Simulated assay, not measured.
Amino acid sequence: MGEPLKAVLFDLDNTLTDRTKSIAKYSEIFLEDFRCQLVEPVTSAWLVDKILTVDQGGYGGHEHRCHLLSELPIWKKTPTPESLLAHWFSHFPHCPVAMEGLYDMLEALKRKGLKLGVITNGKDHVQRAKISALNIESYFDCIVTSGEVGIKKPAAEIFHLAVGKLGLNAEEVVYLGDHPINDYYGAYHAGLKAIWLEGYLPWPSGVVQSSSTIKGLSEIVPLVFKK
C-alpha cells in the first residue's frame, strides 16, 4: 500500500453494519407495533423487500421511504409518514446487525497496533446509537459524523478532520466504505488510501474503477499489510 500505515477509518452503514439484516431486524418490530393497523398479516420477508426497494442502501431519503411505506396497500388505518419516520428513528438505530467478520477484523487490526475510526454521514445520535448497539465504541480512536461536524462525505474536509483527530497525515491512513463516490473517491481525493467494499452499491458508469477493492471484511487485514 506504499507509505507505512498507522490507521484505518471506516464508513458505518453497509461497511461495519449489514443494512439488509438490520432492516430485517427492524421489520419484526415494525410488524409487531403496527399489527392492529394492517389489513391482513404481512410477512417480514415481504416488508423487508419493500423497505429495501425504497431505502436504496440508505440513500433513498428517510422522508421519501416513510411516505412510500404509508402508501402501501396494507393498512386498515393509514399512519402518517411523520409517525412512520418517528418509529424508524426510535427503533432502527438500535437494530444494527454486524457485517460478517466485523469483530475478528477489528481485533486483528488493533493487535497490529493501528488506530481505528469511523466517518459516517447521518444524524450524530443515530449513528452513535448504532455503534453503541454493536458494542464496538472501545475499538475507535475517533468517530466523526456529518451531523456533528456539519460536513458530509464526499467533502475532503470531513476526512481531513478525522485524520487530524488521529494526529496523522492523510497518506498514513486507509479508508474503507461501500459508496463509490462518497467513500472511495471522497477518501481518495482527500489523500487517503481508499478501498471500496464491493457488493452493496453499483459502480457508476463512466467513473474510473477503484484500484483497490474487497468483497468482505476478512480481506482488509491482508490487504492493508500487503507488501
Rank of each mutant, 00 (worst) to 15 (best):
H160D: 07
V207N: 00
E198P: 04
S132A: 12
K76A: 03
F159Q: 03
K227M: 13
D13R: 05
H179P: 05
L47W: 14
P79V: 04
H62Y: 08
D124Y: 06
I29D: 09
H91F: 15
L192V: 12
D13V: 09
K123N: 14
T15Y: 00
L5Q: 06
M105A: 10
L114K: 01
H87S: 01
F30G: 10
L109E: 02
E71R: 13
L201M: 02
R35S: 09
A194P: 02
D183E: 11
R128W: 03
N182C: 14
I143L: 00
G150P: 12
D104W: 15
V126Y: 03
L9W: 00
E137R: 06
V97A: 03
R35P: 15
A133H: 05
T213M: 03
C142D: 10
E40Y: 15
E63H: 15
A133T: 13
D183T: 04
L114A: 04
Y26C: 07
I143T: 06
L5I: 15
L114G: 00
E3M: 08
H87V: 10
P154F: 01
R19T: 11
Y184C: 01
E198V: 13
G206H: 02
P79M: 15
K77C: 12
T120N: 10
G186Y: 02
A24K: 08
C66A: 11
L176C: 11
W203T: 12
D11L: 03
L68Y: 15
K21Q: 04
E32N: 14
Y139H: 14
L161N: 07
L114C: 01
E107Y: 13
L106N: 01
H67E: 09
I51E: 02
K21E: 03
T20D: 08
V54Q: 08
R65W: 05
P180W: 09
L72E: 13
S83E: 08
K165G: 02
G61E: 07
T17K: 01
E63G: 12
A155Q: 14
W46E: 12
Y200Q: 09
F30D: 05
I136G: 00
A133D: 05
T78S: 08
K50R: 04
G206W: 06
E198I: 12
F30I: 14
S146G: 14
V208W: 11
S138D: 11
L106C: 10
M105K: 06
L12M: 10
G164A: 13
I151G: 02
G191N: 05
G101L: 09
S211K: 04
V149D: 04
I143P: 01
